[in-house]
């Protein structure tokens, strides 16, 4: 669960977390498939779980997420359609006290972590565009869809501004401007609402819009994204 203060122990699948308090310090211990991590913290530290973009395991490579649809979404000219996507997230373990706030551990919640190139390969050898974390998802048009465990629900409004029918098979998201929200002590996680505007047969603009729900808590952005210049939209220049 997200936003859960780990006071004693926590078990998530194959992961076992134990927090032990001693007289002058606190010991965080996590074991996962034989891999053990231990961190010593000051006595007053609080250990808490948070969702985190699935971009930091095995290591941080890119801030882009390319969601590849398992089935195409076809939009008629000058119309729009709202779809729901489940974006995978991992579990971040944060420790904080009065004077510090730090990511101390990252627990991968998924079995496969792959990346893909969004962009053309010129002359078969020159790769251009963006490297993105590849996520294969089935889009659903159900407005009342709930976020699945280990996923964040993203509501995407696709607006077709062109004069032709448009088939959408992927969407490129930039995690830097895309905010994550969660409901504490649940597995419910949401991204802010997304608008995808199809400008032409090849070009789409992704805009990041409203907060998804009133009771949601906004996730503090990871260190990697702090202080970066960020755009408020993502341009898909090489097709959608």
């Amino acid at each position: 669960m997200y936003g859960l203060v780990v006071k004693d122990s926590l078990e998530i699948g194959e992961v076992f977390i134990k927090v032990e308090r001693f007289e002058s310090y606190l010991k965080y211990r996590r074991s996962m498939r034989g891999d053990v991590k231990e961190v010593l913290l000051d006595r007053n530290a609080v250990v808490e779980t948070r969702p985190i973009y699935s971009l930091f395991y095995p290591s941080y490579v890119t801030g882009y997420i390319l969601v590849s649809f398992s089935k195409q979404v076809v939009i008629s000219p000058k119309s729009s359609l709202r779809i729901m996507l489940q974006l995978p997230v991992d579990l971040a373990i944060y420790a904080y006290s009065a004077d510090f706030y730090q990511l101390i551990d990252l627990i991968p919640l998924h079995s496969s972590y792959k990346y893909a190139l969004y962009g053309p390969v010129i002359s078969s050898v020159e790769a251009t565009g963006y490297i993105a974390r590849l996520v294969k998802e089935e889009p659903v048009a159900d407005n009342v869809a709930e976020p699945l465990e280990k996923h964040c629900l993203a509501r995407v409004l696709i607006v077709n501004k062109t004069q032709d029918f448009a088939s959408v098979s992927k969407i490129l998201l930039d995690a830097k401007p895309l905010k994550i929200f969660y409901i504490p002590e649940t597995w419910k996680c949401y991204t802010q609402d997304i608008k995808m505007i199809l400008n032409s047969g090849e070009h789409a603009s992704i805009l990041y819009e409203e907060k998804p729900c009133k009771e949601c808590v906004e996730l503090e952005e990871p260190e990697e994204f702090k202080g970066l210049l960020r755009t408020l939209s993502t341009e898909m220049l090489w097709g959608y």
Partner: peptide
């Protein structure tokens, strides 16, 4: 392998 791109 996580770092081998799926596309291309």
């Amino acid at each position: 392998h996580p770092y081998v791109l799926a596309e291309p």
